[in-house]
Amino acid sequence: MTRLLWLDYLAGLRERKTWIAAAMLVYAVLVIPLLLADPPPHVREAIAAWFADADPFAVFMFVWIDLVMNKVATFVPVILASGVVLRERDTGVLAVLAAKPLTLSRYFVVRTVSACAVMLTLYVGAQLLAALWFPGRVAGFRPGTFLAAMSLHAFAVLFATAFAATVSVAVGRRGAGALVALMLLGLMVGLALVGFYQPEWYEMTLVNPLTLGALSMRDLAHLGASTLLPPMLALAGLTAVTIALGSRVVRKVEV
């Protein structure tokens, strides 16, 4: 299964949609510091109201995680993973592959883990590019803290990828599945930082995986294993459960 996973990953990297996703990420990395250099007045007012005393790096990280990478976590996983198994069924490729000694459940696991690996490759590449591009362009930029915070967020993006795949096979139709996954991930992203604005709701928002991915925002000055590992493990567990659920649901897909 490792060999199949590797070949599927390589095939995934070569797909057109992967290059579109990569272009989106590179665009975000290159453009955000330029946009933030001179934000419109209403954005400046909002930032001043929320982060009047915060250091400029914290303000930047809020923008980067919530306004940029959380949007990536909504769209790119849907682009990469919502066609898993269903696209093969709709195009007729599954008619060939389903006759091989691999259950549909296992095939779903291979395709979803492979989509997660492609997502992770794009995501890590984008953050490394950002770590090289942002110094000097973002006031007070700290590459170590940036990469630590983004490594936690990467787990949320992996969850989003598995979630998009599972929701799509549960819905059973590619277009509708992608829309439902997009809507649900959009809802999670929309509510991800509610706890920051309404501190009394904070604990309640921890059930949201996208909130877990943004927990580094709470205290950027003291990121370490004790603050990053628990949410990482929780997200890894949620991702595994989501894939397991998808591997059960996919059995109803007609070959």
Partner: peptide, 18 residues
């Protein structure tokens, strides 16, 4: 149908891995 983005050689390797 065959996967359009794979080459013939890649596809046979993929099926062999199954």
């Amino acid at each position: 149908a065959l996967p359009p983005d794979m080459t013939a050689r890649e596809f046979l390797q993929y099926v062999a891995a199954m």
